[in-house]
Amino acid sequence: MSAAHPAVLTVTPNPSIDRTVELAVLTRGEVHRATGASVEAGGKGVNVARALALHGARAAALLPCGGVDGDRLVAMLAPQGVEVVPVAIGGTIRTNTTVVEADGTTTKLNEPGPLLSGEELESLLRTVRARLTVGPRWLASSGSLPPGAPADLHARLVHLARESGTATAVDTSGAALAAAVEAGPDVVKPNLEELAELVARELTTVGDVRTAAAELRARGCGDVLVSLGEAGALLATAEGTWWAGGSPLVPRSTVGAGDCTLAGYLAAEGPAPRRLAQAVAWGRAAVLLPGSTVPGPEQTRTGAEGVRVVENPDPDTPVKDLQR
Results as ranks from 00 to 15, higher is better:
residue 112 P to Q: 02
residue 292 S to V: 13
residue 222 G to M: 11
residue 289 L to K: 06
residue 64 P to T: 03
residue 80 Q to F: 07
residue 286 A to W: 00
residue 245 G to I: 06
residue 267 A to E: 07
residue 211 T to V: 12
residue 44 K to H: 11
residue 52 L to V: 12
residue 161 A to V: 05
residue 185 P to Y: 03
residue 80 Q to N: 08
residue 158 V to K: 05
residue 305 E to P: 02
residue 45 G to T: 04
residue 214 A to R: 14
residue 145 L to W: 02
residue 156 R to N: 00
residue 72 R to H: 05
residue 252 R to A: 06
residue 17 I to W: 01
residue 166 T to P: 02
residue 249 L to I: 15
residue 84 V to H: 04
residue 44 K to L: 11
residue 120 E to H: 05
residue 248 P to Q: 12
residue 131 R to K: 14
residue 130 A to Q: 14
residue 231 A to I: 02
residue 18 D to I: 14
residue 88 A to D: 08
residue 290 P to L: 12
residue 208 D to Y: 13
residue 264 G to E: 10
residue 67 G to H: 09
residue 178 A to R: 14
residue 133 T to M: 13
residue 175 A to E: 15
residue 164 S to Y: 00
residue 220 G to N: 09
residue 27 T to D: 06
residue 162 R to V: 02
residue 70 G to T: 09
residue 10 T to H: 05
residue 226 V to E: 01
residue 169 A to R: 03
residue 251 P to C: 11
residue 157 L to A: 04
residue 165 G to L: 10
residue 197 E to A: 15
residue 233 A to H: 06
residue 289 L to F: 03
residue 65 C to E: 04
residue 218 A to C: 05
residue 169 A to F: 00
residue 234 L to C: 04
residue 208 D to S: 12
residue 251 P to W: 05
residue 128 V to K: 05
residue 290 P to Y: 12
residue 44 K to N: 12
residue 95 T to H: 01
residue 2 S to D: 14
residue 4 A to S: 14
residue 291 G to T: 04
residue 318 P to A: 08
residue 149 A to N: 04
residue 310 V to A: 01
